Simulated scan of single mutants.
Amino acid sequence: MNKEALKKKLFTEIYDTHWLKLYLHLLKMLDDEDDAKDVVQEVFASLWNNFDAISIHTSFTSYLYSSVRNRAINYLAHKKVVISYEKAEELRDVNFSNAPDIFLIEKELAFQINSEIDNLPPKMAAIFKKSRLENKSYREIAEELDIAENTVKKQISRALHLLRQKFIHIKYYLFFL
């Protein structure tokens, strides 16, 4: 019997012996038949694909149960992220449908922010624009303007402080939008 046929025979024996036990174990964890089937199938697919490379230091049954449990944990974590994303999308859709003028508000807010940035002292405005609009690092800005990196940091901090003071009322308005 060649190596591939032996691998197939061994894998089939493992699959037939353990699939149902692993499925029932996962069904208790996931409380969903399709999810439990999917996770068990993923474990067996991974086992088949990595059959020659797997190094097991415990009993094979322990290895399979650990693999299934870890996959289930990863699956649940991924599912939680997906559900959270879907809820955020639904909320975004509801907010946009309830506020058809949101784009006008956004445009006006951007205009006000740019206007306030332009009203900053000239050197501060230049440093702030290089940092926030051009995405330059403090070091790049300092080298370009031939000033200390600490000066750049202080100027940006001061600009943010001034802008926050100008727009403190906006965050309360946006909260209720």
Results as ranks from 00 to 15, higher is better:
E13L: 12
E13I: 08
I14Y: 00
D16F: 07
D16E: 14
D16M: 10
T17K: 15
W19A: 08
W19D: 00
L20H: 09
L22D: 05
L22A: 07
Y23K: 07
Y23V: 00
L24W: 07
L24Q: 13
L24T: 08
H25N: 09
H25D: 07
L27S: 06
K28R: 12
K28G: 08
M29Y: 10
L30E: 04
L30F: 01
L30C: 01
D31A: 14
D31N: 14
D31K: 15
D31S: 15
D32A: 05
D32L: 01
D32W: 00
D32P: 00
E33A: 10
D34W: 08
D34H: 13
D34N: 13
D35I: 03
D35T: 07
D35H: 10
A36R: 03
A36M: 06
A36D: 04
K37C: 11
K37I: 14
K37Y: 15
K37D: 14
K37T: 13
D38P: 05
D38Q: 12
D38G: 06
D38L: 08
D38R: 07
D38S: 14
V39K: 04
V39C: 04
V39E: 04
V40M: 05
V40W: 03
Q41Y: 08
Q41A: 12
Q41R: 10
Q41V: 11
E42R: 10
V43T: 02
V43H: 00
V43P: 01
V43M: 05
V43K: 01
F44C: 02
F44P: 00
A45W: 11
A45C: 13
A45Y: 11
A45S: 13
S46N: 15
S46M: 12
L47Y: 01
L47S: 03
L47E: 02
L47D: 02
L47C: 02
N49L: 11
N49C: 05
N50R: 11
F51V: 04
F51K: 05
D52H: 13
D52Y: 10
D52G: 12
D52K: 12
A53L: 09
I54F: 06
I54Y: 06
I54E: 05
I54P: 03
S55N: 09
S55W: 00
S55Y: 06
